[in-house]
């Protein structure tokens, strides 16, 4: 019995749980917008593209988070620019830009001696996170969360119908870059705690889970946040006993929830679809 509560005796475990939950919540809110806007892989791209910024910031002695943030914006900005100025498709452009930046980061990284561990950036180290990093991550994540909640209706309209947003006098360019900045900031906060791959997963899966379950945006936000926080807590907790990579445990918990939602969702789930098909056997959807 005491074994079950063992993780909670350690201060570092409690802190890790809290940080994981907070970052999970922020990423979940963002993921709802990303899923609806069709930007799911923007998270992937930006989180890889921050590497050269981090290395450069290290060389000039600036805060790593600042470098990462700017580098993420460069990735998003140049993807947009190249897309509008050439005939190459957006996903291809994204692939070229983020791998180019990541490779640049790798080359720079192998040229400088740093005490930044590449593995920490890639895979995160939730349990070994430093105090200052933790505070930085918490502050960034909180600001991102506040901005998104305050502007959630504007961002929603931006994702739904940009033309209408412009016609009622909203500044859509501002909203576009705001969403990208919030995304970059969140990625920077999440990277230090949980690593690139987990960040990418956290920026996609909760939104998809919620999108399967609900047809209303506010409910979607709520479901996404709950599922993300739940998986963050369960994943971290389980990883203590397994003694395995924390980030991976969180991602796998999310994946499990996704599969559950996919099968059981009340209206859009596989079982529901089968039930509807059985109830009205005349209407057959041709592929």
């Amino acid at each position: 019995m005491t074994r079950i509560f063992e993780p909670f005796q350690y201060g570092f475990m409690i802190e890790a749980l809290l940080v994981a939950a907070l970052i999970g919540a922020v990423c979940a809110v963002l993921s709802c917008y990303l899923v609806l806007e069709g930007w799911s892989l923007m998270g992937d791209a930006i989180s890889h593209a921050v590497l050269p910024g981090i290395v450069l910031a290290y060389i000039v002695g600036a805060p790593l988070a600042l470098g990462a943030f700017l580098s993420g914006l460069v990735c998003a900005g140049s993807t947009g620019w190249i897309k509008t100025h050439s005939r190459v498709k957006e996903d291809t452009v994204m692939g070229i830009v983020f791998t180019g930046l990541f490779a640049l980061g790798l080359v720079m990284f192998s040229r400088v001696q740093t005490d930044v561990h590449l593995n920490h950036i890639l895979f995160g180290s939730l349990l070994g996170i430093e105090r200052s990093d933790m505070i930085q991550a918490t502050v960034t994540a909180s600001i991102a969360l506040c901005v998104m909640l305050a502007l959630r209706k504007d961002l929603l309209l931006y994702c739904f119908d940009q033309n209408h947003a412009k016609v009622v006098g909203m500044n859509t360019t501002f909203l576009h870059y705001l969403l990208l900045s919030v995304l970059s900031a969140t990625i920077v906060a999440a990277l230090q705690a949980v690593g690139i791959i987990l960040t990418v997963a956290m920026l996609i899966t909760p939104g998809c889970i919620a999108y399967l379950i609900s047809d209303r945006f506010d409910r979607m936000l709520l479901i996404a946040v709950i599922s993300a926080v739940f998986s963050a807590l369960v994943g971290t907790y389980v990883s203590y006993f397994l003694d395995g990579a924390t980030g991976s445990c969180i991602v796998l918990t999310q994946a499990l929830l996704f599969v559950l939602a996919m099968v059981l969702a009340p209206k859009h789930g596989l079982l529901a679809a089968r039930r509807i098909a059985r109830a009205s056997p005349v209407t057959v959807d041709l592929p």
């Binding site: 609806l36 929603l156 994702c159 739904f160 999108y211 609900s214 047809d215 209303r216 409910r219 979607m220």
Partner: peptide, 8 residues
């Protein structure tokens, strides 16, 4: 219009 967008 994205008709599966979660708005009423």
């Amino acid at each position: 219009v994205d008709w599966s967008f979660p708005v009423s």
